[in-house]
C-alpha cells in the first residue's frame, strides 16, 4: 500500500501544479486585457473615485508578477476590500468581490452549487445506466438488427445539442401532454419529492445527450477487449458468452468510462450552462451566463477558476479510483 500512498501524493502534487498554471493563464488572459481593467471590474455604474479604489486594490500600477502574486495571495490568505464606506473581509479562499452585486464571489457560487450538484449527480446516474446499458446491449447483440438500431440512435443522440432535446421534451411533456409541471427548482431539504419531480426532465435531457458518448465508449472498448488473447483463452476454457461480455469485456471499458465520467462531472459542477439556462434552474451555470451578460469580471474569473478546480480535482480522483480498481495500472 506504500506504493499507492506515494502515487496518491504525487498525483495530488501534480494537480496543484496544474491548478497554479491554470491560474496564471486565467490571470493573464483576463487581467491583462487592452481595456481599462479597473473600469471593467468595477462595472459601468462606478464613479471615477471608485474605479481609482479598485485599481489600487488590484495593484494595477505594480509590475505583472507582483499583481499576480497579490491575486494568488488573496485566494490563499484572504483579503480586505474597502467599499468606500465600510471594509469587507473576504476570508480564504477568497476569489474576490463582485463590485456590481457587492457580494463575495465564492459566496455567490456556493449558494448556487446545490442546484448544479443536484442536476449533475442525478443526471449522472441516468446516463451511466442508459449509456453503459446501451453499449453492453449492442455488444451482446452484435451483428443483429438490435445493434444497428442502437448504433443509429446513439449517433442521433450525439448529434443533438442538449437544448434541442430539452426543448422538445419540455414542449411535449410539459406543454402538450401536461404530465409534468414546467421545471422549477425546489431544494431537496424543502421537499425531496418535489425536488425529484421538477428535476426529472432536466436530468433526462442531459442524460440522453451524454449517454450517447458513454454508449460509444463502452461499445468500442468492449469490442477491443473481445479481440484480446486472454478473452480467447477464457472462451477456450468454456466460459460462457454472458460471462465473457458481462465480466471480462466490461472490465476493459472501465478505464475510459471512469476517465470520461470524472471529466464530465468536473465540468458540470462548474455549471451545466445550457441545461440550466433552458430549464431556468438557478445554478452555477446560469449565474455565469448572467455575469457574462453584465460583464461582472470578478465573478466570471472566479467561475472559471472554480470550474478548473473541479475538473482538476475530478481527474485526480479518477486516476486514484482507477488505480484502485485495476491493479495492473503502473503507478508513476
Amino acid at each position: 500500500m506504500n506504493g499507492f500512498g506515494g502515487f496518491a501524493v504525487r498525483r495530488a502534487a501534480g494537480a496543484v501544479v496544474t491548478l497554479l498554471a491554470l491560474s496564471v493563464i486565467i490571470y493573464v488572459v483576463f487581467y491583462v486585457t487592452p481595456g481599462d481593467v479597473a473600469q471593467i471590474t468595477c462595472g459601468p455604474r462606478c464613479s471615477p473615485a471608485q474605479v481609482q479604489q479598485v485599481s489600487a486594490q488590484l495593484h494595477l500600477d505594480d509590475p505583472l508578477y507582483a499583481r499576480y502574486w497579490h491575486f494568488l495571495q488573496g485566494i490563499v490568505a484572504g483579503q480586505d476590500y474597502s467599499t468606500g464606506t465600510s471594509v469587507q473581509h473576504c476570508s480564504a479562499p477568497c476569489l474576490g468581490l463582485s463590485y456590481q452585486s457587492d457580494q463575495q464571489v465564492l459566496t455567490l457560487i456556493l449558494a448556487k452549487l446545490p442546484v448544479t450538484a443536484s442536476l449533475a449527480l442525478g443526471s449522472m446516474v441516468l446516463w451511466l445506466i442508459i449509456g453503459v446499458g446501451t453499449g453492453v446491449l449492442s455488444v451482446w447483440r452484435r451483428g443483429r438488427l438490435t445493434e444497428r438500431l442502437l448504433t443509429t440512435v446513439t449517433l442521433a443522440g450525439m448529434s443533438t445539442p442538449v437544448f434541442v432535446i430539452g426543448l422538445v421534451l419540455m414542449i411535449v411533456v410539459c406543454g402538450q401532454l401536461e404530465l409534468l409541471p414546467f421545471p422549477q427548482y425546489v431544494p431537496f431539504t424543502d421537499d425531496p419529492e418535489q425536488w425529484a419531480w421538477n428535476l426529472l426532465l432536466p436530468w433526462l435531457s442531459l442524460a440522453l445527450v451524454e449517454s450517447a458518448t458513454y454508449a460509444r465508449i463502452t461499445r468500442a472498448a468492449m469490442l477491443e477487449t473481445l479481440t484480446e488473447d486472454h478473452v480467447r483463452t477464457f472462451r477456450a476454457y468454456g466460459v460462457g458468452e454472458r460471462a465473457v461480455i458481462g465480466r471480462h469485456a466490461l472490465r476493459g471499458a472501465l478505464a475510459p468510462l471512469i476517465a470520461v465520467n470524472a471529466n464530465n462531472i468536473g465540468v458540470l459542477f462548474g455549471g451545466a450552462v445550457l441545461t440550466e439556462t433552458l430549464f431556468g434552474l438557478p445554478g452555477v451555470g446560469r449565474e455565469m451566463v448572467e455575469a457574462v451578460k453584465v460583464v461582472d469580471l470578478p465573478v466570471v474569473v472566479g467561475m472559471v477558476l472554480v470550474t478548473g478546480f473541479f475538473v482538476v480535482l475530478a481527474n485526480a480522483v479518477a486516476d486514484v479510483l482507477y488505480a484502485l480498481a485495476d491493479r495492473r495500472v503502473v503507478l508513476t
Binding site: 488572459v29 483576463f30 451566463v289 457574462v292 451578460k293 469580471l297 474569473v301 467561475m303
Partner: peptide, 12 residues
C-alpha cells in the same frame, strides 16, 4: 471547461 471559458472570453 470549454463552455465556461468561451463564455468568459466572449464577455471581456
Amino acid at each position: 471547461p470549454l463552455m465556461i471559458v468561451a463564455l468568459a472570453l466572449l464577455a471581456v
